[in-house]
Nucleic acid binder design. Structure first.
Lengths: 195, 195
DNA sequence: AGATTAACCGAATGTTCGGTCGGGACAAGG
DNA sequence: CCTTGTCCCGACCGAACATTCGGTTAATCT
């Protein structure tokens, strides 16, 4: 049987706490003191698990980016007609956003003040470009409206999806199920609000 | 003829500089030192024009909120069928976002750490609720799809519009004209991407 | 039992923060 | 040309900041 070890922090479990605080107060607005209080250990103990504040940020945005880029390798994003692949990526991006909500939230808010933040922004732009290419392909195949510039359409599409991090809260009281949210995203994005 | 006065800052012209820096580095990530360098005057001189960092934030978000609430009083937002009013508000919100870009950008990024930020968040929620009511009315009149929860639809709609602040840059090189952007927003929101 | 080590802490480090203070330059009005 | 008020500066302050350090505790290993 499994031994019950002392209840202690790992870099990852500490990360989970830190990311919550980062999202509440903003990365720059969060002090190590805030983190220590939220984690229930002293400020100096945090440095036993991670090198510093920026390592926590790096781990968080790295995890978010892994989730997003993972989508692009899935069969549904690789095979089939472009519009179907775009629909798939749209839905799965919404899924990943909700599954990895705090990590992606942090990713979408970095402003480029540190090396880590600039790296995150660059990788994120890369992801956007991959999706933009998909959208252009779908326009070329005649399945998407051609009267809106593809880059503009991509940005508005992501704007809609990414806004999830501003208001979506998992299940529980008053929370809509993730499936319904993802459905709504795909429906509105492709067919619009009108009857 | 008019006298040529000394070239000097007013609270408002200083605000314009400050808001740019706030948006680049984030409010918390911006020090008074950063502001002074960007404005070309010393840190202490800033305090001659404004009471402090937070007053700059307050002025900025106040201006953004005035712009947004102004829309709700315009004839196009008051008279006519609900779907037309919603379309009007959607387009005008996009317009205001682009006209007052740096100020609205700051508004959409506050996280609630200070009194000013919490006040801004509350007034913003108020605006969202006014639009949400409009959307519900349009659903009741049968002009909008009923298979997506109105609150959810409102959030996704705003998500799309508000994303403007993340990428729209006025005219100039590589910048699309504001009119075309607003057109695209309304078209995608109401009729979707599909052909 | 004794040695090792991961997990932790309180106190202190140097740095940067938002903000203050006393004074200097300079235009306008007398 | 001398006051007055505006605009600005360098020097400074206490507080808060991220990080380091020397040492303590308590599991685990031999």
């Amino acid at each position: 049987m499994t031994m019950s070890k002392r209840d202690t922090y790992t870099p990852d479990s500490l990360l989970a706490v830190a990311v919550e605080v980062f999202n509440e107060r903003g990365y720059d607005g969060t002090s190590m003191e805030h983190l220590s209080r939220a984690a229930g250990i002293s400020k100096s103990s945090i440095y036993h698990h991670v090198k510093g504040k920026e390592e926590l940020l790096h781990r968080a945005v790295g995890r978010a980016l892994d989730g997003l880029f993972g989508i692009l390798g899935e069969p549904g994003a690789v095979d089939g007609r472009a519009i179907r692949r775009l629909e798939y990526v749209t839905r799965r991006t919404a899924d990943v956003l909700m599954d990895e909500l705090p990590y992606v939230t942090l990713l979408l808010r970095v402003r480029g003040n540190t090396t880590t933040e600039r790296w995150a922004m660059e990788r994120r732009r890369e992801f956007d470009q991959r999706v933009s290419a998909l959208l252009r392909a779908a326009v070329a195949e005649g399945d998407l409206r051609a009267d809106v510039e593809p880059r503009l359409a991509t940005r508005l599409l992501f704007g809609m999806i990414n806004s999830l991090v501003e208001w979506y809260r998992p299940e529980g009281r008053g929370g809509v199920a993730g499936d319904q949210v993802a459905d709504a995203v795909v429906r509105l994005a492709f067919d619009g609000l009108r009857t």
